[in-house]
Design a protein around this nucleic acid. Sequence first.
DNA 1: TATAATAAAGTCAGAGAAAGTCAAAGGTGA
DNA 2: TCACCTTTGACTTTCTCTGACTTTATTATA
Lengths: 152, 152
Amino acid sequence: MARLSDIIENFIKDMIEETDGEVEIQRNELASYFNCVPSQINYVIATRFNSERGYFVESKRGGGGHITISRMSTDKPYDYFMHIILSMGDEISQHSADIYIENFIDLNIISESDKKLLKAAVNDNSLKSIPVFLRDRVRADILKNMLMKIII
Amino acid sequence: MARLSDIIENFIKDMIEETDGEVEIQRNELASYFNCVPSQINYVIATRFNSERGYFVESKRGGGGHITISRMSTDKPYDYFMHIILSMGDEISQHSADIYIENFIDLNIISESDKKLLKAAVNDNSLKSIPVFLRDRVRADILKNMLMKIII
DNA sequence: TATAATAAAGTCAGAGAAAGTCAAAGGTGA
DNA sequence: TCACCTTTGACTTTCTCTGACTTTATTATA
């Protein structure tokens, strides 16, 4: 029994397919097309088009507002990256972040310029305001988030 | 879905482009060209051409009045970056960070790949483990740290 | 030379448009 | 039955557009 959310999910996926990876929708328009409340569109997006599933979403409110959903590319580097990212664990020290980053350079997966920014983002200077007990967790979040964006 | 404000924004940006960084407009004339009230021009200027976005604006009222919009010079990227970084303050919202980053793209001083990484590093998803009251401070630290690395 | 008329631009609050949030209620499958 | 999805809708936030009113500068006139 396909639920409405599944139907909307597939509808959006078809649109993304047709438009080559990125689609712009109007929340209210889509909701009225499916005869549901607008917030159901948010539910579908939150549960089906989040970054764990390889999508990212931007939106704008007000007149002319819209929601843009993009799919990350699904070629091999993507799978490889995802594997590494998923294996990373929830906390990473500055030292081991540096090792990961150097490794990516060795493997030719990221550019020197990416490396500079990755290191700048996750070094202790950037994170100096965060209580120490939280720092390695935030570092892991940032590093993973950035790596995910590299493969988009 | 481009709103009138977006259209006016692009119109002004094209003019700035053609005139190499500075343009002088008549508010009423522009408003009647676009069939809108004059104060909409103020709205566009306030939201699209503020200093956060790398512009500054001067004007004069009365007969022969006008509005002059200038884009900050990017001849010396180092100076420009330093200026922006120094003007940033100790706390930055995600929205405001995005505006800074988009502006760097508009002015061609960072690459698309830099943009992706900057945005990924400072979005709320990366910083979700940080208590909200600290988040904007950490975001500012990370953004500044990364920008500094770009100019080195 | 004062003063009045005119010609700009500035301000601000309100209406309207669109998306976001969140908790409560309703289903469903193991 | 019970935990976990889905669905709903009231309320919130953000962005855009408008118009009445204000301020400032220039020009014409007494």
